[in-house]
């Protein structure tokens, strides 16, 4: 009882305190962030992730009695190898010792060169002072020359920009071609899975929105515009779900983001009765 009243009092005092607003704001902000981060996961969580294990293909084979003949010669070969191994080990140790010697020599040489360098630096400083004055004169001249170069550079830049733009356009065109071949694959796969209900007729249209992840797996299918025939719409949805994943191997992520993270499928039969 007592505890309850004290907590109540505390709660009331908190409500009127200055810290109430900021605390609420921060709690709401956190909740908002949690929702934003956790939102997209929902659909992918419902469908259990698939395990695509690495594997070795194996077939059961019955052994024929020809096998034992080979066993004997193999043993001899192994013992020969052992002798070789001992000799090799010996050789390797000799080489190691040689290397250690070489490294010592190199270290001594380094010390000598460093001493020389210090001397040279002192000389350079003296020379620099004398040269400075000459430099100032030259700089003035340089500035004039630079201005001229700048103008030239700007012209060049404009040309380069135009070139880059053209390149970008070319790139986009190439991307579109690549995307086309992938859409062809997707179309073939969906068509091979689509079994239409007998009530389907030419001219029925159903638009689906598909969401993919870069591995090609479908994470979401939704009907944007139905045909009015629910059996037809469901068959379209099922065709996509049956396809499960599309083969996107070799697709650059740029193309994926541009075209395939989210795309539409329009089901529009042409080979049926009117």
């Amino acid at each position: 009882m007592n505890y309850v009243t004290t907590t109540k009092q505390y709660a009331i005092s908190f409500l009127h305190s200055d810290s109430f607003m900021p605390v609420m704001a921060s709690v709401l902000l956190h909740a908002f962030i949690l929702i934003i981060v956790g939102w997209g996961w929902e659909s992918s969580l419902v469908t259990p992730r698939k395990v695509m294990p690495n594997y070795v293909e194996a077939k059961l084979v019955a052994l024929k009695p020809t096998a034992p003949k080979k066993a004997a010669p193999k043993k001899i070969k192994k013992s020969v190898k052992k002798v070789d191994l001992a000799a090799q080990r010996h050789e390797q140790e000799r080489l190691k010792q040689l290397q250690v010697k070489k490294q010592r020599q190199i270290a001594q040489k380094k010390k000598a060169t460093e001493a020389l360098k210090v001397k040279q630096l002192a000389d350079k400083k003296a020379k620099a002072l004398a040269v400075e004055k000459a430099h100032q004169l030259q700089e003035e001249q340089n500035r004039l020359a630079e201005q001229q170069i700048l103008v030239e550079q700007q012209q060049q830049q404009a040309f380069a920009d135009a070139l880059a733009e053209e390149e970008l356009l070319l790139q986009a065109e190439l991307d579109a071609v690549a995307a086309q071949s992938f859409s062809g694959n997707i179309r073939n796969k969906v068509q091979s899975k689509w079994s239409r209900p007998p009530s389907a007729r030419n001219g029925m249209k159903c638009l689906l929105k598909i969401q993919l992840i870069p591995t090609g797996e479908i994470i979401d299918v939704s009907v944007i515009k139905g045909s009015g025939n629910s059996a037809f719409d469901r068959s379209a949805e099922q065709a996509v779900k049956k396809a499960e994943r599309f083969d996107l191997s070799g697709m650059e992520s740029r193309i994926f983001e541009k075209y395939f993270r989210q795309f539409n499928l329009e089901f529009n039969p042409q080979d049926l009765r009117q």
Partner: peptide, 9 residues
């Protein structure tokens, strides 16, 4: 007809 053996790299 044939069975895969799962492995780890």
């Amino acid at each position: 007809p044939s069975v895969g053996m799962a492995t780890e790299p």
